[in-house]
């Protein structure tokens, strides 16, 4: 039996969900062009940036079982890596983005080396504590606006080759980044390295017994996730043209966890669905009531109680139900 997994005839409901989702994102600027509803472009840009952040969190949380409650630190570090150089009139993205990725990786390496020596609720608390440290550090730096934040006058430009000043161009830059992130994470999770990460989540004791120093693998995974999220932070700074410590508030870290859990932990595209649900619900519910966080919480409880697989799991279920009906 030879099945071509790439042929649409053999796609699973999940693959379809991902293909449709990405197709909508790819075609959205065209729709916006026709209707002039630029608002959707903004919404989808934010969705994709948070999606990249959620995908990176999912790498450690879903695949690695490391429940970090401080992942928003990297959004902040990435955004300030654009904002601070811009403050000194350095707008070159080829400088800003490597700074964002390198600083995030370094922060992940240093804090991860400590955090990963703890387990369970201690890990959750210590990751949060480190992020709070960064948060208060930026609050206290008056030069960069303190808690008022900093306006980024000009978006990254790439050594005169191209810039992302135009909203549609920024959109496609973010979209391409999203695709690259998904592919990267897809490869990592299926690699030998990914198997070790998965195994360490399942049974660390057994992994030690067969010869893995799981600490080292987890630390590298933690650094990769931090670096990707730092990149998302650089996009976020460019997108909002404004940065403030609020980006790395502990609630922002909570929201990233929310997206991962709502979308489906340990799945490739789930966090994107989670980010989409988050951004869209936030938009719609906040128009209805100022107590929208309450409805949000209720939704999360329902998902955790009754739908462990998250939205991505729901896609599977609907897909199978539809298949049964057809045959």
């Amino acid at each position: 039996m030879k099945r071509d997994a790439l042929s649409p005839a053999n796609w699973t409901p999940r693959t379809w969900a991902m293909a449709v989702g990405l197709a909508i994102l790819a075609l959205l600027p065209g729709y916006v062009e026709l209707t002039g509803a630029t608002f959707y472009l903004d919404l989808a840009s934010r969705l994709m940036i948070l999606g990249i952040a959620a995908v990176s969190l999912n790498l450690i949380l879903g695949h690695g079982g490391m429940i970090s409650f401080g992942h928003a630190a990297y959004l902040g570090i990435g955004a300030y890596s654009v904002g601070i150089p811009a403050y000194y009139e350095i707008h070159n993205g080829f400088i800003q983005i490597p700074i964002a990725v390198a600083c995030s990786a370094l922060f992940a390496l240093i804090t991860g080396a400590i955090c990963l020596r703890t387990k369970g609720v201690y890990f959750i608390m210590i990751t949060m504590a480190f992020t709070q440290m960064v948060f208060f550090a930026f609050v206290s730096i008056e030069e960069y606006g303190g808690d008022d934040g900093l306006v980024i006058e000009m978006r990254s430009e790439f050594a005169g080759l191209f810039d992302i000043e135009d909203a549609t161009r920024l959109y496609y830059f973010i979209f391409a980044s999203l695709l690259a992130t998904l592919y990267l994470v897809h490869r990592i999770t299926r690699s030998r390295f990914g198997m070790v990460i998965e195994g360490a989540r399942g049974n660390e004791r057994r992994m030690h017994a067969i010869g893995y120093d799981t600490y080292r693998y987890r630390l590298v995974c933690y650094v990769i996730a931090g670096a990707i999220c730092g990149f998302a932070g650089a996009l976020l700074g460019n997108f909002t043209n404004f940065i403030s410590p609020e980006m790395m508030d502990w609630t922002a870290s909570g929201e990233l966890i929310f997206m991962v859990v709502l979308g489906g932990t340990g799945t490739l595209f789930g966090p994107i669905l989670g980010a989409a649900a988050f951004v869209l619900l936030e938009e719609w519910l906040s128009a209805i009531t100022i107590y929208w966080h309450f409805l949000f919480g209720a939704l999360l409880i329902l998902v955790v109680l009754f739908w462990r697989g998250g939205l991505y799991g729901l896609v599977d279920w609907i897909g199978r139900a539809a298949w049964r009906k057809r045959s």
Binding site: I188, R192, V196
Partner: peptide, 22 residues
Amino acid sequence: DNVALAVQAHAGHSFRFWADAR
């Protein structure tokens, strides 16, 4: 996969990020 992980543990380091292990 359980057994493959044990095999992999003794087939050099596992800092290999790209090729599909399965």
